[in-house]
C-alpha cells in the first residue's frame, strides 16, 4: 500500500538520514522524496511516498518520535499517488 506523508521538521544536516533510516527499518520502502528548506532555512518541508504492507500509522508514530519533527500528516491514496515533487 502506498502512502504519501507530509513532514515538517527543524532543519538539521542529518534529518533526512534519520527519516530514511526509520522508514527502511520499520518496513517501508521509499519510492519518492522531496525536501526543501523554507526561507529562513530553519524548517525542512518534506513530502515522501512510501510503500509497505504494514499500517502507515506504525511509521508515522515512529517519525513523530524523531527529535525535531514538528508535524506529520498522512495522505493515503492506495493506487496512484502523485508526489507533489
Amino acid at each position: 500500500m502506498k502512502s504519501l506523508l507530509i513532514i515538517e521538521a527543524k532543519n538539521s544536516p542529518e534529518f533526512l538520514e534519520r527519516l530514511l533510516r526509520v522508514c527502511r527499518h520499520r518496513g517501508f520502502t521509499t519510492t519518492n522524496i522531496n525536501a526543501e528548506t523554507g526561507n529562513s532555512q530553519q524548517t525542512l518541508h518534506i513530502t515522501i511516498t512510501v510503500v509497505s504492507e504494514r499500517n502507515i500509522s506504525l511509521l508515522t508514530k515512529q517519525i513523530e518520535k524523531i527529535i525535531g519533527v514538528k508535524q506529520v500528516a498522512t495522505l493515503r491514496q492506495e493506487k496512484n499517488i502523485k508526489a507533489t515533487a
Partner: peptide, 8 residues
C-alpha cells in the same frame, strides 16, 4: 508513555 508502542 510511548505512543509508538500503542497498536504496534
Amino acid at each position: 508513555v510511548d505512543a509508538a508502542e500503542i497498536d504496534k
